[in-house]
Nucleic acid binder design. Structure first.
Lengths: 121, 121
DNA sequence: TTCACCAACATAGTTAACCTAGTTGGCTTG
DNA sequence: CAAGCCAACTAGGTTAACTATGTTGGTGAA
């Protein structure tokens, strides 16, 4: 695997995994092989596998969970044809986050000015 | 730069550059500072800068030319219909914000109710 | 049995080193 | 002067090592 076509290895692996996901060969919810297993399977180094998985993660096709593994995302939770609704939902979420963040920031400001405490991080 | 917010450095740098590009602070056609300069500017390692630039390159915001540098892409020649990438990007940001906010909220809750202590683990 | 600890394995992030390849500008040589 | 070489830059790809953190299963003690 990962032949010398000029296309970088991490893109070849990402392409292959993406194809398998889109094609259903890797069903939603499926746990991908571990980084080490993929490295052996594609005869690549751990680094390029990590880069490939990072790309898919960035694309929202998979979700990595520390300590468990990398899972194929459900088709519903990943960008389907309904981008309008998705956008609307995202917007709503962002609004919610903004409100929550504002509250926290306010609390934090008053508590730190009033009461010296946890400051470092 | 690249403060310790829990958000990985390569994403912080990518966010910052993306903001500058979207905001017009880095106009289309502009030559970005070299990898080494960015590394110094953000006080980060070369590796994280390369990862950050790689993300923007993957998003189509910039184009790297070997031997010359990395240029900001014109808005028109950018992948126009690539709402997929936009959505993925937004989704990633929202996910990150949720996690960070949840952590802060929890910290705040415990620190206000009882002694600020880290007892987990 | 149940609880606590620990080793093994997982993703994730960071850093450093090395290599390839393209560009540019200056310097040397004919 | 002109041609060509070369050193110094650039981006890009690959690899390895290390750290942090989360999960899981087994082991041993109470």
């Amino acid at each position: 695997m990962v032949q010398n076509t000029g296309r970088p290895g991490y893109l070849q692996i990402a392409d292959d995994l993406r194809t398998q996901i889109r094609g259903g060969s890797l069903a939603p919810g499926t746990l991908l092989p571990s980084t080490a297993q993929l490295a052996e399977q594609y005869d690549a180094s751990l680094s390029v596998v990590k880069m490939a998985v990072g790309i898919l993660r960035n694309e929202g096709l998979v979700i990595g969970q520390q300590g468990k593994g990398v899972f194929v995302r459900d088709a519903e939770e990943r960008p389907a044809g309904d981008e309008q609704a998705d956008l609307a939902e995202l917007r709503a979420t962002v609004r919610d986050l903004s409100v929550r963040l504002a509250k926290v920031e306010e609390q934090l400001a008053t508590s730190t000015s009033r009461r010296p405490g946890r400051s470092s991080r």
